[in-house]
Amino acid sequence: MDALLTGSGGTRLRWDQLPERIRHEVERRLGDRVVAAHVQHGGFSPAFAGRLRLAGGGRVFVKAGSAADEAHIGTAFRHEARIVAGLPEHAPVPRLRWWFDDGDWVVLAFDEAAGAPPALPWQRTERDRVLAAVADLAATLTPAPDVPVPDLDDEDGAALSGFRRLAAGDPATDPDRRLAAAFPWVAAELDTLAAWEARWPSVAGGDTLLHGDLRADNLLLTDDRVLFVDWPAAVRGVAWFDLVAFLPSLMMQGGGDGAQVLASHPLTAGAEPDALTAGLVAVAGYFVSQSLLPALPRLPRIREFQRAQALPALELLRTRL
């Protein structure tokens, strides 16, 4: 199966490729020597992420990234550490043991979870477990704990304004003017989509802490729990947003009918239909506009992955509009 559809579009650093000083500092903080390291594949970051086995038998999960590799990595890891440190103990998230920042490298150490990402294409039983866990996560994190995250309805962020920026002719959003060829339906309906997207800030507000980037490679299934990992994109907002933002990757990876999930999931059961449509438009606009940007040398397949999520998002929209 294509690596994109399994969420493994990047090449991660190995443990032995980390600077010696970073490996020594990790071992010093762990109080033991690393005797084996298994890279956790999945996602698109070039940073190290892996399970470490220690000489004394202990195990830990470590993430390590350098701003020299990709400028946003250090910022994202610092942000994630502050978020996860503030989550309640009963949240379905591996416990953060410690983290450090030397000004370039940022390293986070978590308890190792005895679980694995869901099998892809999605299996019905695992999909249903995850969908139920998304509802439980929203309940656990409402009201939102006091952690440093932006609000979804904050227009200053403007992260979910892709269609409006395309409609305004923002050259930074479509520098090569590929919209009409890549997404002809979007080009024909752009003004309508931008108008729907303009409603998004008025319905996005809420007091739920949201993961903000749910995909199969950010989930771990244990025998009795679904754990949510990789939290740098967390935001505060309406409780159903994580579900809506998850649907494009779920559909892309064989998870079934997104419209049926929307119609039956407890998080969307009482939502206003127009609010859901505005949320779907905002998510689709993000994936469409991001997929049109120039490729990133260290993340060579990210634009392809964003396009692969844009297509099912647009499929959902066409049935609603």
Results as ranks from 00 to 15, higher is better:
Ala204Glu: 05
Gly237Met: 02
Pro19Cys: 01
Val229Asp: 02
Glu27Arg: 09
Gly279Tyr: 02
Ala245Cys: 11
Trp185Lys: 06
Asp176Met: 08
Asp170Pro: 05
Gly103Cys: 03
Ser161Asn: 05
Pro92Ile: 01
Asp170Gln: 10
Gly212His: 12
Ala132Glu: 13
Trp200Leu: 09
Ala269His: 12
Asp274His: 15
Val226Phe: 02
Asp217Ala: 14
Gly285Gln: 07
His79Gln: 15
Leu179Ser: 08
Trp99Met: 07
Arg127Trp: 06
His265Phe: 13
Gly43Tyr: 00
Asp191Cys: 08
His265Ala: 12
Ala37Arg: 09
Leu166Val: 08
His265Tyr: 14
Pro117Arg: 04
Leu96Met: 07
Ile83Gly: 05
Leu210Ile: 12
Leu267Phe: 09
Ala68Asp: 13
Arg318Ala: 11
Ala295His: 13
Pro150Ile: 10
Ala275Met: 11
Ser45Lys: 01
Gly285Asp: 07
Leu152Met: 15
Leu243Glu: 11
Ala263Trp: 04
Ala37Glu: 09
Val238Phe: 05
Asp224Arg: 13
Ala308Cys: 10
Leu276Thr: 06
Ala109Ser: 13
Pro88Gln: 12
Leu87Arg: 09
Phe163Arg: 08
Leu108Glu: 12
Asp191Ile: 06
Asp136His: 10
Thr268Pro: 06
Arg303Asn: 13
His72Pro: 02
Pro148Gln: 08
Ala245Asn: 15
Ala37Cys: 14
Val106Tyr: 00
Leu131Thr: 09
Gly43Trp: 03
Pro201Arg: 05
Trp200Pro: 02
Ala275Pro: 08
Asp242Gln: 14
Gln17Val: 03
Val147Met: 07
Gln309Arg: 14
Ala188Gly: 06
Gln309Met: 12
Arg236Val: 00
Arg215Asn: 12
Pro171Gln: 10
Asp146Tyr: 00
Ser289Gln: 14
